[in-house]
Design a protein around this nucleic acid. Structure first.
Lengths: 235, 235
DNA sequence: ATATTTATTATGTATGTACATAATATTTCA
DNA sequence: TGAAATATTATGTACATACATAATAAATAT
């Protein structure tokens, strides 16, 4: 068995060698690379082994693959970052800080005309509104304004949200199939400033997130963070 | 062939059924699920087919798997979002706006003591500083302050950054193995406000990003966006 | 009773063969 | 010449069998 055959006799080794060729520009963006049969012969392994390596690179956004059309180097490689919907209590405690939570407001009301236009809601079905504050070491950390679609989660009316945040309950109990997220900056409104105990107009980091289960909207939340917050991730 | 056997005779069908059981809480967070042999018997397919389905769910963050230990439902499912380092020109043109770019400043200097402490740089090797403005429809869109490690990318000194942005050149020419990203909000500083033509102290969205190739730092950039910017993604 | 060694278990992966199928190329027909 | 039909190609996936190996359980030795 030659050194070369031994060298690439597993999908990770094939994966790494292809990646090296991508990074060194041996294969350039947009370029068609050798097909699986050719690569299997070159690497001395089976075609499904090459398939497994190339699929992983395609999943990572570095290759584009289509049946018959072949495998091309991606023009603009995209990368996936891990983004989780954090349980805010664990995020705060993970920073070594003491967590506290206050439910500010809750009510059931018909959704507004605007919401009915934006989401698959009907104004005959009430939705649950919840506003809350999360504290870290007795300082405001994040203020959230949320509504929940009761048609999608009728059992949520049984939950005591003075004891657990909607954020935590939903992460633990409400699976979702899709989440739309938007990150932005804004000056704190009069109300946001009051709740976070900061001057009106201070720059705040905002996360708007809507989660869906199949075609049903589950919940939509606007989270306004205290001014020193930064969200970190890795790609 | 029974309906059941036909029903789950491919990895996607197995994947979807397992996902249904996770979402319906038939299998609860932390719980051990049946092993691959058992599931293969139940679904009437081969063990590698079940393996493929469960691996995909583990990659998605919904299951935790270890040899011998088995497969458990993840306690806190994380989800991956696609985050790309955008070519700003394409992002602006994608919004139907006209792109323009101005290189404000470039120089080669030794890195500061602070940078040498934070990154694997030496103060005998100069780094390339580049500040630039990106415009959309003749309005400032994003102001960026960047440095590039010349030890990692010596060929960059040949590039004319009055004609192409560092952002675009680096995405096209500098592969990376890791990127650290931070999103935050801040009041625009005097300099940032001047370059973006906004009042000092206005809330701006900030992206800080450092990319690495193996152990070498490649570039670090702070991007300050015009106040109406929002970054959207899907999980 | 505890530490060490050995056995077992469950996941990880490779293979060759085979079939499926999306996409492209070529051929045929009008 | 262009449309439709057919052929071809390259990726997608299933399988049975086999082997690899990390992790846990059980057995053995002290």
């Amino acid at each position: 068995m030659s050194a070369k055959v031994a060298e690439f006799n597993n999908w990770q080794a094939v994966h790494d060698e292809v990646l090296r060729r991508l990074h060194s520009r041996q294969w350039k963006p947009g370029e068609l690379i050798p097909n699986e049969v050719e690569l299997a012969q070159e690497f001395g392994c089976a075609r499904p082994t090459v398939n497994r390596a190339l699929r992983a690179l395609a999943d990572a956004g570095l290759l584009d693959r289509r049946r018959k059309a072949g495998t091309r180097v991606a023009m603009h490689p995209v990368r996936k970052a891990t983004l989780e919907i954090p349980i805010i209590r664990l995020e705060i405690e993970g920073k070594g800080q003491k967590y506290a939570y206050k439910l500010l407001h809750t009510s059931q009301q018909s959704p507004t005309e605007i919401l009915c236009k934006q989401f698959p809601l009907t104004n005959t079905q009430p939705i649950l509104y919840l506003n809350a504050l999360h504290y870290a070491d007795q300082k405001p950390y994040m203020y959230e304004v949320r509504w929940v679609n009761l048609a999608a989660l009728p059992q949520i009316t049984d939950v005591d949200f003075t004891k657990i945040s909607a954020n935590e309950w939903l992460v633990m109990n409400a699976p979702f199939t899709k989440g739309d997220i938007s990150f932005s900056a804004a000056p704190a409104s009069v109300n946001e400033a009051k709740e976070l105990d900061i001057p009106v107009g201070n720059a705040v980091f905002i996360v708007d997130r809507t989660t869906w289960y199949e075609g049903d909207v589950i919940t939509s939340v606007r989270q306004v963070f205290f001014p020193d917050y930064a969200m970190n991730t890795v790609i």
